[in-house]
Amino acid sequence: MAKLWYIKLIGYFALLFLYLPIAVVIVMSFNSGRREWEGFSLIWYQRLASNTMLADALINSLKVGLISTVFSTILGVIVAYYLIRTRVSKFFKMLVSLPLYIPDIVLGLSSLSLFVLISFPLSIWSITLAHITFCSAFVALVVSSKLALLDKKVELAAKDLGATDRQTIIGVVLPQLKGAIIAAALLSFTLSFDDYVVASFTGGPGSTTLPVRIYSLVKFGVTPEINALSTILFIAAISIALIVARVDSKAFTR
């Protein structure tokens, strides 16, 4: 398709387009003014550091993120093992893949319905439970694709040499899944940390997570500290993505 330069041009512009808003935010974070460019400054980063509301939200997000990552990774790995190495009913298969198809707004409002109806208080825990439910589906997806590629004969060899089922899973299957599990855990953390929709439905006063806080700040456009925060988040995101890329490619060679 060498002749169609205009097609490719659109393509290149599209790739730039993907980074346009990100670039704008980063640039604005160093702007000493609020709207128009008034000179380079780190003032917003300083203000950011002393913003307690954001700090609280960040802590909530980290709590939710870490706890839900731990449990959704465990749950997701177990689900992946059942899906690939045992026989499961169609119902089970449908059930565990539901979160992948359902829009997050439905996940959010249905979880809210459940919690209120059983009088479960809306707090860090309600958000965490909802997050575990949908993040685990993604963990299961990532881990099961790797698990399906493993040589079954290796597990058979382990049993042949005397290992029980439990010893085989712990000593032979899990080590081979190491890369996929790490990548899945990072994905799970990112999904939880970045989630706005589900957290806005299932959170209560005092359990505001960072995206929820950011949302109100963006909506009302009040403080440019957002730009500084966004830049930091963007850098953190690139780092995690790079880590996953390295871990995942290593997982492929082994």
Partner: peptide, 11 residues
């Protein structure tokens, strides 16, 4: 058993 593909533990 020694399998045709040997099934050595890769890790």
């Amino acid at each position: 058993t020694i399998f045709q593909s040997y099934a050595l533990f890769p890790h």
